[in-house]
Amino acid sequence: MTRTKMLAALFGATAMMTGPALAEPAEDTLNLNDEIELVTWTEPSEALDGALTEVISGWHFRGDETRAMQADDFDNPGMMFADQARETWDMVDGAAGKSCASCHGDVDESMKGVRAVYPKWNETAGEVRTLEMQVNACRTEQMQAEPWKYTGEDMINMTALISAVSRGMPMNVAIDGPARETWEKGKDIYYTRFGQLELSCANCHEDNYGRMIRADHLSQGQINGFPTYRLKDAKLVAAQHRFRGCIRDTRAETFAVGSPEFIALELYVASRGNGLSVEGPSVRN
C-alpha cells in the first residue's frame, strides 16, 4: 500500500467515525386513503443527467406518525385548506363577474393533471409560469379581479386544491424548447453556493440526503409534495417559501418569492422529481 493510499484509508475511517450519521429513508408505501398507491421512490429522469441514482419523495424521510398523517385525507390538515378553496373556486370575484368555475367548470375534472406540468412555458406571455402566476393571470386577465398575494392564504389554499386533484399522477414538467433557458438558469442556482455557510442546494440535498443535519433528516428536497402542511408552522407552505427558508439557513440574503430566480429554481427542482407522484398537499415536519 502506498503512503497516499494509506493516508486516504485512514482519512476514510476517521470520516466514517466522526462523519454525519446515516439514517436510511423509511421503507414504506404511501397508499392514499387505501385507494391509490403513490410513486414515492423511482428511477431518475433524463433531467437529472445522472446526478441522482434514485429519486425519493420527502415523505420517506419523515417519521412514522408524519407519514401516516399524509396517508389519510381526514388526518391530513392540509386537505382542510384545499377544501376551503373549493368554495373560493365557485365564488364570483372581479369586474368580469366570473369565478374560476365560470371558465373551468368542475375543479376535479378540469384541473386534473395541471399541477404535474407546472412550472410551464406560456407561449402568449413568453415566460415560464408557476401555478401561482397562472392563477393570478386568470384573476387579473379573465376575472378582472385583484391578484392574490403570492404566498397568501387564498393562493396557497387554491394551489393545494389544484394539487390535490392531481395526486397520484406523475410529475412531468417540460424542460425542453422555450423553457430550456429558464431551466438552465435554475440549474445554475441549484449548484451555486450561497451565504456565509457557502452551501448550494446540492450540498445538502444531492450530496448528503439520508444523513442527519443536527436532528433533521435531510431529504432530496423534492417539491412534488408542495404545497405542504408543515407541522412546525401548522399551516400550508409553498415551494418558494421553503426555498427562501433554505437559503436563509445558509446565512444569505434570499431571493424574493415570485422572483425570476425562484421561478427558474422551481422549474429545475420540479424537473428533478419528474416521475414522482404529485402529493400536494403533503405533510412534513
Binding site: M212, I213, R214, A215, D216, L218, G245, R248, D249
Partner: peptide, 8 residues
C-alpha cells in the same frame, strides 16, 4: 422532541 436543523 427534536430541534430540527432547518429552521426547526
Amino acid at each position: 422532541v427534536t430541534i430540527g436543523g432547518c429552521g426547526g
